[in-house]
């Protein structure tokens, strides 16, 4: 497959040179072309390069169809890029692995397992002894606020609870990077807010690297150290914005903070522009 030449350089702020030790994920000139039944191939990603620091919370923000989820799947090893490569700690990603833990919008829990069974699944697969895996899993279930629900099946839980289980299930096998694919996209506004708060609390404890795909500007600014703005058709990086807000972040303080508001307004403006670019091509 031919590499589609990048036209993104005119927008992209040059990626700041990183100390090699701090980079955990390096995406190098990744392009992804899907063959469609119509005559034209769909270019989901065009020449994406991105470096993610260890311990950073990075959001990938963009309108639907900009390939942001595809980019996450490339890092996850679930799809292989048409060209270019993604690396974790210097190793080229060739497939999924327990160093990268996904959390999907669809939850993707194992419906035949209880909450405890779902959370224990990863550690057990990794060879952790049953008693140990159970103790760790129970602690994680408590941490995501589901104590008392260990014996429930996924069908008995609400969407928000399912996503809490999915988060615990992924944290249970200690991935180095969390890959979150619009994890709160299927939830109502109230549940969404609560899960954002809880995710931030959990994250601020151990500062695991997070790659977080979303189309919500508020969510991206609230959670992230860095927001990667993507634009559509073909999917490419439009801009990378550092979110310089103090942590730990509290929603009620942040919403009143003019710096937060400025970020939101500015990124929303860019979002609208990139949406226009997308629809015009």
């Amino acid at each position: 497959m031919k590499v589609v030449p990048s036209r993104s350089s005119e927008w992209v702020r040059p990626v700041r040179p990183q100390k090699p030790a701090s980079a955990i994920i390096e995406i190098e000139r990744v392009s992804q072309v899907f063959q469609t039944s119509t005559r034209k191939d769909h270019v989901a990603l065009s020449d994406i390069s991105l470096t993610i620091d260890e311990g950073a919370f990075v959001s990938i923000l963009g309108p639907s169809g900009c390939g942001k989820s595809t980019l996450l799947y490339v890092v996850g090893g679930f799809v292989s890029p048409t060209s270019g490569s993604a690396k974790i700690k210097g190793r080229t990603i060739t497939g999924p692995g327990p160093d990268r833990g996904p959390v999907f919008q669809e939850f993707a829990l194992f419906p035949w397992k209880t909450v405890l069974g779902n959370v224990m699944y990863g550690p057990r697969q990794q060879g952790v002894r049953a008693t140990e895996a159970e103790a760790q899993s129970r602690a994680l279930i408590e941490m995501v606020g589901l104590k008392g629900y260990e014996g429930f099946y996924p069908k008995e839980l609400s969407g928000g609870m399912k996503q809490r289980v999915a988060l615990a299930r992924t944290l249970a096998y200690h991935p180095e990077v969390l890959l979150m694919d619009e994890p709160f996209g299927a939830l109502d506004a109230h549940t969404r807010t609560r899960l954002q708060n809880d995710l931030l609390n959990i994250w601020e404890r151990d500062r695991k690297t997070v790659l977080f795909v979303t189309h919500s500007v508020d969510e991206a600014v609230f959670l992230s150290d860095k927001v990667v703005m993507m634009s559509t058709s073909p999917g490419r990086i439009r801009d990378i914005i550092d979110i310089d807000l103090p942590r730990p972040r509290r929603r009620n303080e942040l919403l009143l903070d003019p710096r937060y508001q400025k970020y939101v307004v500015e990124i929303e403006r860019m979002f609208d522009e990139s949406d226009l670019i997308g629809s015009s091509s």
């Binding site: 692995g97 419906p111 035949w112 991935p175």
Partner: peptide, 24 residues
């Protein structure tokens, strides 16, 4: 996505067939 979740936990394709596809 269920299969992907299993793959990320380290299940091989054969294990995914027996331990995810079969029960699902």
């Amino acid at each position: 996505k269920m299969l992907w979740s299993g793959a990320a936990m380290g299940l091989s394709p054969a294990q995914r067939l027996v331990r995810i596809v079969l029960p699902a």
